[in-house]
């Protein structure tokens, strides 16, 4: 057993476990978007789950830290919160904030984090940067909303886990990167309609299953 302290609170856990998981299990909230516990190495792309670990220079994403005995962690420092707020502002500046018509309304991690970090949903100092298309019909049975998507990669990784190979991919690069279903399906044993795990796992409802 390893004993670590998080914000002064002492926690007993197994050594080598993922720090972010341990914190979340112990009701210590750390903002996060792309984290999937079973994914190794972690995607570590959202850059929200920063914490400070004693002995390490500067904040580190907690999803990349393995717990070791005696570790002292702070989740609520000025530097950590500042990074989290900036990351969230960046997300929101590339996100179509239309909560009222969004199916993710009230279950949306962006809303939750905005409340927690006290960041306005519509930023005053960053101009929005949206993609041209609001909606793309993805083959074979999904709709994809590029301007909702936070590119966390959960859909890809889940698809890969379920099917052995992901049918979804990141396409393009940089600010124009999207999720794509290019080319549809090769002969698959499980059809996408039956599975739809990618839509289920999407935190912001950017992928929707089209029924009927």
């Amino acid at each position: 057993m390893a004993i670590i302290t998080v914000d002064g609170l002492s926690i007993e856990t197994e050594p080598g476990r993922n720090l972010l998981s341990v914190c979340l299990e112990n009701d210590i909230y750390i903002p996060h978007l792309c984290f999937m516990e079973w994914l190794d190495p972690p995607h570590a792309s959202c850059r929200l789950c920063y914490v400070e670990v004693e002995g390490k220079a500067g904040p580190v994403p907690s999803c990349t830290v393995s717990v070791a005995s005696g570790m002292a962690v702070k989740t609520d420092t000025v530097e950590v919160r500042s990074l989290q707020r900036t990351a969230l502002k960046f997300f929101l500046s590339a996100h179509k904030v239309e909560c009222k018509v969004c199916p993710a309304n009230r279950q949306c991690p962006l809303q939750e984090m905005a409340k927690f970090l006290k960041v306005p949903l519509k930023s005053k100092d960053l101009n929005p940067r949206l993609k041209e298309k609001d909606l793309e019909a993805l083959q074979p049975c999904f709709e994809y909303y590029p301007n909702r998507c936070v590119l966390c990669g959960k859909c890809l990784h889940t698809c890969e886990r379920v099917k052995g190979q992901s049918l979804l991919t990141f396409a393009g690069r940089g600010i124009d990167m999207t999720v794509s279903f290019y080319g549809g399906l090769p002969n698959e044993e499980i059809s996408c309609e039956e599975c739809a795990e990618c839509a289920a796992v999407c935190p912001v409802k950017a992928i929707l299953l089209v029924t009927g």
Binding site: Q165, S166, L167, L168, T169, G172, S180, P186
Partner: peptide, 18 residues
């Protein structure tokens, strides 16, 4: 190419657009 490699076309497309 996807057929040849036996991987989804999307994988090939993702790489090519990168």
């Amino acid at each position: 190419v996807a057929e040849h490699m036996e991987i989804p076309s999307s994988e090939v497309y993702g790489v090519a657009t990168f």
